[in-house]
C-alpha cells in the first residue's frame, strides 16, 4: 500500500457514514416539512383498528390459541426425517455397519421426540 492511499478502514467508515446520512437526511427533511406545514390530525375513527369501514369491535390485542403452532413444530420432526431418509434409502445397500447404526440412532432420537409429544398429549386437539 502506498503512503498516499487512505487506509481501507477509513474508506469503509466514510462509506458507512454516507450510507447513514443518505437514509436519515430524507427522513429528517420529511419530518421537518410535516412539522412546519402539515398539522397532525389524529382522531378516534382514524386510529380505529378496523380498516374495512365497519365499526371496530373489541380489542386488537386478543389471544390466539397456539394449538396449530404445536402441530407445525411436531411436523418439523417428520420434515427433517424425510430429508435424511431419502439419501439414506438411496445409499442403503452400500452403507457400512457404523453408518447404518448412526442413522438408526438419529431416527430413534427423532421418534423419541414424537413419543414425548404424544405422551404430553400434544396430539389431542383441545377444545378450549
Amino acid at each position: 500500500m502506498s503512503p498516499n492511499e487512505p487506509s481501507p478502514g477509513l474508506v469503509v467508515a466514510l462509506l458507512a457514514g454516507v450510507a447513514v446520512l443518505f437514509s436519515l437526511v430524507p427522513l429528517g427533511l420529511a419530518w421537518l416539512w410535516a412539522r412546519h406545514y402539515s398539522p397532525n390530525k389524529p382522531g378516534n375513527i382514524k386510529n380505529a383498528t378496523y380498516e374495512c369501514g365497519l365499526a371496530t369491535r373489541g380489542d386488537a390485542w386478543i389471544r390466539f390459541k397456539p394449538q396449530y403452532y404445536l402441530y407445525a413444530i411436531i411436523f418439523l420432526v417428520f420434515d427433517v426425517e424425510t430429508i435424511f431418509l431419502l439419501p439414506f434409502a438411496a445409499a442403503f445397500t452400500g452403507l457400512p455397519a457404523g453408518a447404518f447404526i448412526a442413522m438408526i440412532l438419529f431416527l430413534l432420537l427423532l421418534v423419541e421426540g414424537l413419543v414425548w409429544a404424544w405422551q404430553k398429549g400434544l396430539l389431542e386437539w383441545a377444545a378450549a
Binding site: S38, K41, I45, K46, A48, G53, L54, A55
Partner: peptide
C-alpha cells in the same frame, strides 16, 4: 356510514 368511516380513516391530504 361505512363510506364516511372509510373516508375518515384515510390520512390527509
Amino acid at each position: 356510514p361505512q363510506i364516511v368511516r372509510l373516508y375518515n380513516q384515510m390520512p390527509e391530504p
